[in-house]
Amino acid sequence: MDIASSGSHPVISREEWLKQRRTLLALEKEETRLRDKVRAARQALPWVKVDKEYLFDTPTGRRPLADLFDGRSQLMIYHFMFGPDWDAGCPGCSFMSDHMDGALPHLNNHDVTYVAVSRAPLDKIEAYKKRMGWRFPWVSSYGSDFNFDFHVSFTPEELAGETIRYNFTDIPREMGHDELPGLSAFYKNAAGEVFHTYSSYARGGEELCATLMILDRAPLGRNETSTLSFVKRHDEYEEKPQGSSCCH
């Protein structure tokens, strides 16, 4: 067995590589079957009727949650970290959002509306959205309980305690922030009733990021020192000469 001159990774014969690759393939198939099982359990999850009224500032005026469906029966809301006093949106949420515009026509054709929601005022949202060049709908929940009720925003009183409630459990306050990310799903029936069907937090939305899925298959993987440590807003990366390496 040789060691690659570019690092400490083993270099082996094609025959031995195929043997190990088939072993990995069996594990990947197991992962796929488990993902199918999780998906089925997710679809079978009971729903909760949303009786509380939530209002959002949109480019066409103040609208209730039911209006965000935009004529479709399913609504996916991305809880985008952008607080009222922030100057820009969260880099990690921005990274995720870079993947959404191309998905919009496919989601819409499948009776699904996608909307980002933040507590930042609408004018800040609109300015940042223009800077990033995004097209997906993005509204403000400023002045609403929506973010707090879905446990992605936290009051000063909550942040003063020892723990906060996030990702369906109590986590140490120091692991939290005044804003945190998440994804929530809703359904509206023919009578106009709205139901909360699913929410996911923390790393639960990673599969929405195609970049991560590609990096997971690249030779050096994510090459991160902590979760998403390599991520910047897409207009903040230093341009690198073609063919240069990001690793030294």
Results as ranks from 00 to 15, higher is better:
L212F: 01
V115D: 02
P84R: 12
C247I: 15
T32H: 09
L183V: 14
A202L: 05
A88K: 07
D85V: 02
Y187T: 15
F186T: 07
M96C: 05
S94C: 13
L65R: 00
L107H: 04
P64I: 05
R63T: 02
F146M: 07
E179Y: 06
L183S: 08
V152M: 00
W138P: 09
S153L: 00
E236I: 07
Q20L: 12
E158G: 02
G243P: 04
K130R: 12
P181G: 09
R203H: 09
A103H: 08
H79T: 08
K240F: 05
V50F: 02
R165Y: 15
H177A: 12
G92N: 14
N189K: 00
I77T: 03
E174H: 15
T32V: 10
C90N: 07
K232V: 07
R22Q: 15
V194I: 02
W134Y: 13
A202G: 03
K129M: 04
R72H: 11
F150Y: 14
G143V: 08
A191H: 08
M132K: 03
C209K: 05
R203N: 13
S140K: 03
V152I: 02
Y187R: 15
R203I: 05
Q43G: 05
R35D: 13
E30V: 01
P59F: 01
E238C: 06
M100K: 01
A218G: 08
P46K: 00
T60E: 14
S94G: 13
G71W: 00
V152K: 00
A160I: 03
T211N: 11
R135N: 14
N223K: 03
K240V: 12
V231E: 03
W47K: 13
D51E: 14
P46Y: 00
P10A: 00
S244E: 09
I171T: 13
E157K: 15
A103K: 13
R119Q: 11
T227H: 11
M1S: 11
Q43M: 08
Y187S: 14
Y166E: 02
R62C: 05
H248W: 12
S73P: 09
Y201I: 03
L228H: 04
S94E: 14
E158F: 09
A190H: 11
P172F: 15
K37N: 10
N223T: 08
E16W: 12
K124C: 08
D149T: 03
G204Y: 06
